[in-house]
Design a protein around this nucleic acid. Structure first.
Lengths: 192, 192, 192, 192
DNA sequence: GGCTAAGCGAGACGGTACGTCGAGTCTTGGG
DNA sequence: CCCAAGACTCGACGTACCGTCTCGCTTAGCC
């Protein structure tokens, strides 16, 4: 029954201190000025304790993302029954964060982290628009005639999240009309 | 009339050697194992010669991109008159590159580079689908009724390029039907 | 009457395993590549069990020396009645060991250990030529006229062992005539 | 004719700062608490600058010894014409240093360093009694009848320096009569 | 043609961070 | 209370590159 493990158990205190230090330094200085050495120092932890449990800084970011320490909860899409309005609301929130001075660099940093770690990429995408939540909404909308019947639903969130990322990468200025236009583009005109 | 400069002129040999070394090492080892030191050595050039002309490695990548040393020319979109077919053709080519073992990492590395240098981001986007070429095509298509009149044309290439990037980041497997579906999503069903 | 100690007694098995591991690793890798961690692992013992009973690696070496696990027994000086011949015999044995590939490094390592632990120094010296055995021989020799009456006997073994150490430190090559000459130097010419 | 060297020349400032830091830290903390990291910091120098020119800390000690930064000059043996008196004087000086609180540890540290680096061993020995100076004195003394004609002169300095080292290793207390007795032992009684 | 810049290959310099090893301490669970 | 296991903090290792700074040489417009 017993695991047979011997020796001291992993310290949850250390684990949290490390993740918090990572999140703080990531927000302050960005992904590529992030150093394991700095994280360990800030967390009051030996470097070895970091390396014992994580292979590198991208894995730390992935775990922070999973624990919701980097991006706000509010990116979850609301469900008011009106799909277009809900997606617009979600995109607007995302834009609001990207407009903020901290949010902008943070998001670009996340993309950098994502580019060297699949986990980060997947979790980043899910943080923005989880396909497992997005898809059912779209399928329902297709059934109810809210969107055209042959809409390629799988690609909708890819296109939306992708466009947002691309704009973040290119430092494109915030654009208040954008969410609506992107929704119009991907979901098509509201059926009369 | 003359520039008035004295002393030796900039060596084009050195410039090219540096860019070629950059492109080669970038392809071999990826963006974040790229080092100025390594580039200078491989190019048979002093480090100072690199620093004299470029501020850092992201600028080198930006210039390589501009010189077409990283991505093939063929990403240019053909113009057969049939917009949907042309876009599908372009997307198919992009996918072909991303499918290749070298292309995949290379593209992700470019995204990493883009995340820390706007120029790279812009040039990367233009290498894939230059809005200055894309937009006129779309406007014409809107005029000719090939796409619906209220299509938000500015956002089309953003959504397409963004979706491709997102899939590359997430190591999504190549999908032969994808180009058609993405075109269908963004340009809408072909008018009857 | 009883010691009053409670709990398990010290494990002789562990003690021996540790000393054997120490001797083996010391012979294999030398004093300063010796690590408590390595010893514990090799001995199949927890690090704490080492630290509970010894303050550090030099103490382990001292105990190994005491147990005769590092240097052979044969360094004991024979007693044939002829002092000079006996000392030459002893020196010849020492030289034989120092000539051997393993012995050379081992001896230098012992000097390193001795330099940071008095006990090791004393035991090393005693392993070579124990003054408690050496001195009586010399006093008897002085009485019997085998050596000059005013010979400073205390210093003889110091000079002999010291010369041997110095030659080991300096990687001096083995020299077959050396024992005889050193004996001649310190004990003086055989009286006629 | 020219060396063909290019690039900046080695910085003598850095070299000296490193050697001085080494000597200071060595005297303060002993050989095995000496760290390259500490030396570099104290010298105000990058670690690489140390590693570029020396393979490790024992080589640094060897060079310090060569530059006379560790042991005083006065170990040179005087030459008053009276060999025995000169050697006694030299030994007395050595003892004086070993008696001093700093000298004792420093000397043992040197032995530790010598045990892992032949150069240190040789230079240490030469610092105490350079055979190239010692030997001619002895040969002359043998010719002049000051010492017996069959004295094995090569071994004299080995025995003397060795005895001193051995006593240092074993933390033997200083003994004012020792120099005279050692000289008596090795050079024999003064001829009548 | 000699003078004065600038460019160049090379490479040393003071630094930061890497990822690893080992030190010595502490904790867990079993005997 | 001992033991094996092993996680902990901390310090140092030796390496890789950073970006700056000489070196000694070559190149080229200017007097």
């Amino acid at each position: 029954m017993s695991e047979g493990r011997r020796g001291a158990a992993r310290s949850e205190t250390a684990r949290l201190a490390i993740l918090e230090a990572t999140a703080a330094l990531f927000a302050e200085r960005g992904y590529d000025h992030l150093s394991i050495e700095g994280i360990a120092t800030r967390a009051g932890v030996g470097k070895q304790t970091v390396y014992r449990w994580w292979p590198g800084k991208s894995a730390l970011i992935a775990e922070c993302l999973l624990e919701g320490m980097l991006l706000p909860e509010r990116f979850a899409m609301p469900d008011t029954g009106d799909l277009r309005a809900d997606v617009v609301a979600w995109l607007t929130e995302v834009e609001a964060v990207l407009e903020s001075p901290t949010g902008e660099g943070l998001f670009r940093s996340l993309i950098a982290a994502a580019s060297e770690n699949v986990d980060v990429a997947r979790r980043l995408r899910e943080s923005l628009a989880d396909p497992r939540l997005f898809l059912p909404r779209l399928l329902a909308a297709r059934d109810s005639g809210e969107v055209r019947a042959d809409l390629p639903v799988e690609e909708v969130s890819e296109a939306l999240v992708g466009a947002v990322m691309l704009r973040a990468l290119a430092h494109s200025p915030a654009d208040p009309g954008l969410p609506r236009r992107l929704v119009d583009l991907t979901l098509g005109p509201r059926p009369s």
